[in-house]
């Protein structure tokens, strides 16, 4: 008896080892491929830049958010379009007379935190629901699939609009909650499809025959081979979540004052757009560059992991 068990364990360990080894070498190949891609390097550098603004704004500006503002200076544009002209206020002042550069730096945290948190929550949900649904099938799959359909069928902006109007407090976490509730569906469907495809592979049958538990089969054998496309989609999802959050800000149901974000700054700038376009241009550039960096990373990673199209 004990002999059989140890034999099973050894065999499972071997299969597990092979799978891990293969994915490790695939990841290694992908990494070598990535290092040579200029778009990947550029995306990474941009992200580092914006990420450091979000994490350590004091590295970039000595002013705190919404501080040292002077209403008399409101809507005063920059003295020079060259941000390196050495001016004390290279981006001018915002609608309340705060230094626009400082506000810009402090505006980085909310979108980045929202984008990453929403995606992490959605990733967790989709891995959980997608694996359960795909692996067990039957009524559980039916139930999860219908719930996914419902969430997917809700008109995105409309849903968020109603929910956010219902809840008066609009801090970062309210936005995260609403966007997570709307954005887990695509990844769940993706995950489910991947798990269904993976669970019919011979190595999964082999692991099951050797007596591996469902949990072990899912975590050791199915997930490592099924999750790559979901991860790749997740990088795109970060960009989409940040973008969606900015739309909510724009519609006036996003973050409330005194929270700062590029979306809020863009929303504040709309009314002034014709007279003071710089108010919109700066946050638009920051927001777009951030989205761009995630998109470029996502593209590069996808190309590297998809040997079919290499």
């Amino acid at each position: 008896m004990s002999n059989t068990q140890s034999g099973t364990a050894a065999a499972t360990a071997t299969t597990g080892g092979t799978v891990a080894g293969r994915s490790a070498s695939l990841a290694g190949d992908a990494w070598r491929e990535l290092r040579r891609k200029p778009s990947f390097i550029a995306g990474l550098l941009l992200l580092l830049l914006v990420g450091s603004m979000a994490a350590f704004p004091s590295l970039w500006t000595s002013r705190e958010a919404n501080e040292q503002c002077n209403a008399r200076m409101a809507k005063t544009g920059p003295e020079s379009l060259n941000p390196f002209s050495g001016s004390e206020h290279p981006f001018g002042f915002d609608v309340s007379g705060c230094d626009y550069w400082a506000q810009m730096v402090h505006g980085a945290r909310a979108p980045i935190v929202i984008g990453i948190t929403v995606t992490l929550v959605a990733l967790l949900l989709s891995v959980l629901l997608g694996s359960l649904s795909g692996y067990y099938g039957g009524w559980l799959d039916m139930l999860i699939s219908r719930i996914t359909d419902i969430a997917f069928g809700l008109p995105f902006i409309l849903g968020a609009l109603v929910v956010l109007t219902a809840f008066p407090e609009h801090d970062i976490w309210a936005i995260v909650l609403v966007l997570s509730a709307m954005m887990w569906t695509t990844m769940t469907r993706l995950m489910r499809g991947q798990v269904i495809a993976a669970k019919d592979q011979d190595y999964v049958h082999a692991a099951k025959m050797l007596g591996a538990s469902d949990l072990r089969v899912i975590f050791r054998h199915i997930l490592p081979n099924a999750i790559a496309p979901v991860f790749i989609y997740a990088t795109l999802n970060i960009a989409l979540a940040i973008s969606a959050a900015s739309v909510l800000d724009f519609l006036g149901v996003g973050l409330d004052y005194p929270s700062l974000s590029w979306g809020v700054q863009l929303a504040d700038a709309q009314a002034e757009f014709l007279e003071h376009p710089y108010l919109m241009v700066y946050p638009a550039i920051f927001l777009s560059l951030t989205l761009l960096s995630f998109l470029m990373l996502g593209d590069a990673v996808r190309d590297a992991f998809d040997p079919k199209l290499r």
Binding site: A239, S243, S246, V247, F250, L266, Q270, F273, L274, P277, M280, A284, L287, S288, L289, L291, L292, L295, M296, D299
Partner: peptide, 25 residues
């Protein structure tokens, strides 16, 4: 490819305002 990435990266309302300002006004 670069152009489409850029389009995805710039929020719709920024595109809308820019288009309105340049092509309209």
């Amino acid at each position: 490819l670069g152009g489409t990435t850029l389009i995805i990266a710039v929020p719709t309302f920024v595109v809308a305002y820019s288009a309105q300002l340049l092509l309209g006004v």
